[in-house]
């Protein structure tokens, strides 16, 4: 158990860093960037759960990952439309 937690944390961290690099690299298309940023938030919420912070994990999953991604897509749809 004690070795499992840091291992999961490391794995999540690696996934978060890869997703963050995908989000900020300019070569990818914008929807992929936005989704990658949402993925960073989602993985961060799992990381918060491992850090014994269930309140923060729920907030990050509902607000940081869910609502923010949809806000981006709303604006993206408006900008693309014309």
């Amino acid at each position: 158990m004690s070795a499992l937690l840091p291992a999961m944390g490391l794995l999540l961290s690696a996934a978060m860093l890869v997703a963050a690099l995908m989000a900020v690299r300019g070569r990818r298309s914008l929807p992929i960037s936005i989704l990658a940023a949402g993925l960073v938030s989602l993985l961060a919420s799992v990381q918060f759960l491992l850090l014994a912070a269930p309140d923060v994990a729920m907030t990050e999953a509902a607000i940081g990952s869910g609502l923010t991604t949809f806000l981006f897509f709303f604006i993206l749809a408006r900008v693309r439309h014309d």
């Binding site: 269930p54 309140d55 994990a57 729920m58 907030t59 509902a62 607000i63 869910g66 609502l67 949809f70």
Partner: peptide
Amino acid sequence: TPGGGFQGGAILASATL
């Protein structure tokens, strides 16, 4: 339990969404 006004409020807004 974990959760509260901010999380619940975001979930209410997701019904709007």
